[in-house]
Each structure stands twice: as structure tokens, then as C-alpha cells.
Design a protein around this nucleic acid. Structure first.
Lengths: 198, 198
DNA sequence: GAAGTCATGTAAAATGTTACATGATTCA
DNA sequence: TGAATCATGTAACATTTTACATGACTTC
């Protein structure tokens, strides 16, 4: 399932331009699927060539023409096929966790900054989801799928935040006012024969 | 942060072959970073060319020669620089959630299968993390980073599982013994003008 | 006056996945 | 006898990211 398929999905809710589709992705999928213009515009071009979407060009003054895309019957069928056949993968790619795994090689201040930044990100994402829910719910009730997915995002990010807040101390060397005078902990050089056998 | 950097990280725990490194990734990073041979072997070749790792070839009978890689001083420095400079991103890419977002276009049986499969995956991953913790802890206490990252994985996947178990019914049309005789719910055709403006 | 929004795209570079190719040994 | 483990790699393909290029209008 790639950006092309997601574009079909976005268009299943109505006609849109590439720009609109990016907005839609940001509002709706931001916490589990992202795409930039550099993949959306080529995807739309390729879908048009394949006859899965059609395109009406609307002239504008000053700005580039708006290109309004619409699902064709073939496109709708293709999307349903994708939904039927796609293997539901679920992959996390986290430099954040990699860095924390190597906490013993990081300066304490760096570690602090990384953790704080991630907590802010989660807070921002949570806020974003809540806004999306409120703003959509004002217009019409969210579809069950949208509702489920928002709830999932909130549940997971809340759990992640709580875990981080509860356990961040275990990564940091004991420091600060009231504690014992700051003792720099040396990054232990690991012995060079853990993973090898023979 | 790419596979090359992760290879340096793996080698920071000791010399290893490409094969060992893949094992290491699977044991250690599997829930937030994966790489296959097709990216590991080229990465090691390129690191060797760049002088960040050195390579000893050990002949074997029948099998291809083992190539034992070791971090060079430059490699160790490069890895520390990466740890210092990498922006800690954290991205989920989930076809699972995309499919659920479009629950209204999925056959009920398909929806069931998707959800069940994902729950099994989470259970499997949780088991995998627990085994890793137990097996490592038997040898030596886990590093704080490793411990934190395992705990994070468990916390998040547990929350995800619980959320799914608690809310999956909201995706499925009411069905089954005891309930009202199965009433097929038609996938509502969405009107075609939600996302467009103008 | 600066920043943000609307609006399109291309091209190069980086990255990663998949399939292929080989083959002995060990375990059930 | 078949599957799994050990062990390497290449080549083609797919995909994504990043930077570039343009430019008017609106809001602070």
C-alpha cells in the first residue's frame, strides 16, 4: 500500500487537488502514514495515466491552475481491491528509541532534550487528534473507522507518554539540587566479544 | 539514521558478521527498526570502504567464508557523532490502521481477520520482548537503555491490544448467536464533495 | 515587512525491498 | 525427508525524501 493507494482513498471522500490531499493526509492519517508533495503529485500523474482518476483543470489568476482529481469507476474498484488484498502491516521506525537504546553513549543533557522533545511531540499529536475529532464531529458524526483510529492513536500515545514520564529517570544519571554532588558516569567501554561466536 | 548507522551500533557491542548483525536487529530492535540482508551486506561493504569498520575473513569448509567485522576508531567516533546529531524521529507506518479507517468499505469477515491478525502480532511481539529480557537478564543485567526500550514496547503494545479488544465491536456490524438475525449493513456510498472547496 | 497559505511540479539522490543464486550441516 | 540454521552476496526494482523553482495573496 503506497501513496497512490492512499490518494485513491482520499478521493473516495470526494474530489480534491494534490494540495487538498496532502491536507487530508495531515489531518487524518498523520500519526500512521505521511506523504509529501514529492510523492503525491507523481502518484496523481501516474493514477491519471492508468485511468484510475480523472482530472479537471481549473484556471486561476496568478496561481498555478487547480487540478481537481476525481475517482473513476475503475479507480473505485481498484481501491476496493487494494483494501481486500493488502496485508495489514504495522511498522514503527523510531530513531528516538534507537537513541535511547544507546543512552549509555549519550550526554545527559542530550538525553534530557531527546526525551522532552518526544513528550512535546506526543502532546502535540494528541492535541491534533482531539481537534480533528471535535471539528469533524461538529459537522457530522465521525465514521466508525475514523473514530476507532483516533481512539487508537490517543490510547497508544497516552500510554507512551505515561511510560516515558514514569521511567525517564532510569536513563539519567542522578543529578541536581538536593542529590549527591554531580558525579559524571563514564560511558563504560563494552568488551569486544559479545556478539561473536567461534 | 540508516542501516549503516545501525550496523555501527550493533558492532559497538562487539565484532560480528552480517548474519550476526541481522540476528541482533531481530532480537533487539525488531519492534522499532528492521533491516534485511539486502540492506545489511551492502551497508557493511560501504562502511568497510569508508574505513569505519575493518573485516577479517575466516575460512570455513562448505560454507561461505565468515567475515567478521569490527569497529575502527574512526567508526566509533562516527557512531558517537551520529548519536549526537541525529534528529530523533518516530514514525509509524500502518496499513493496519489505514484499512480500519476504511472499515466501512471492508467485508465484516475481512475486518475480523485483520483485527485478529494484529492482536496475534502484538501478542507475539510481547512474548518476544519478554523472552529477550529474560534471556539477557540471565547473563547480565540489561543496560538502562535496553531496559527502557523493552518496557516502552511492552507498554505501548499492551495499550494497543487493550484498546483494540475494547473497541473492536464498534467497527463490526452486530452479528451472531443471540443477537438479532444477521442484518447486512450496506457500505454507504459517500457523497462526492467533502474535501473539495470552490 | 515577514510569515503563512495556496498551488504546481521536477530531478536527483538516498533508501529499502525482493528475488535470485549457492550449499553444507543439523535437527525432528 | 524436509525444514531450519548458518553464511554470503548481487541486481533490479520500488519508493521516498530533499531540494529546487515560481509566485500571488492574505494576515499579523
Amino acid at each position: 500500500m503506497d501513496v497512490k493507494d492512499l490518494c485513491l482513498g482520499a478521493l473516495s471522500f470526494g474530489d480534491a487537488t494534490g494540495y487538498d490531499i496532502k491536507k487530508f493526509f495531515e489531518n487524518t492519517f498523520s500519526h500512521f502514514f505521511l506523504a509529501g508533495y514529492g510523492s503525491i503529485y507523481p502518484a496523481l500523474a501516474s493514477l491519471t495515466a492508468a485511468g484510475l482518476v480523472s482530472c479537471r483543470t481549473l484556471a486561476q489568476h496568478g496561481k498555478p491552475d487547480r487540478k481537481l482529481y476525481r475517482l473513476t469507476a475503475a479507480g473505485r474498484r481498484a481501491f476496493l481491491d487494494t483494501l481486500r488484498d493488502t496485508t495489514p502491516r504495522h511498522r514503527l521506525k523510531s530513531e528516538f528509541l534507537v537513541l535511547l537504546y544507546f543512552a549509555h553513549l549519550l550526554a545527559p543533557a542530550r538525553l534530557q532534550a531527546i526525551v522532552d522533545q518526544q513528550l512535546r511531540n506526543f502532546d502535540g499529536n494528541l492535541k491534533h487528534i482531539r481537534q480533528y475529532e471535535d471539528c469533524c464531529a461538529a459537522a457530522q458524526p465521525l465514521s466508525p473507522g475514523a473514530h476507532f483510529v483516533c481512539g487508537y492513536g490517543k490510547a497508544v500515545m497516552t500510554a507512551a507518554s505515561e511510560y516515558i514520564r514514569a521511567h525517564r529517570h532510569s536513563l539519567l544519571p542522578p543529578t541536581g539540587r538536593g542529590a549527591a554532588p554531580r558525579k559524571l558516569i563514564q560511558a563504560r567501554r563494552q568488551p569486544v566479544h559479545t556478539a561473536s561466536r567461534n
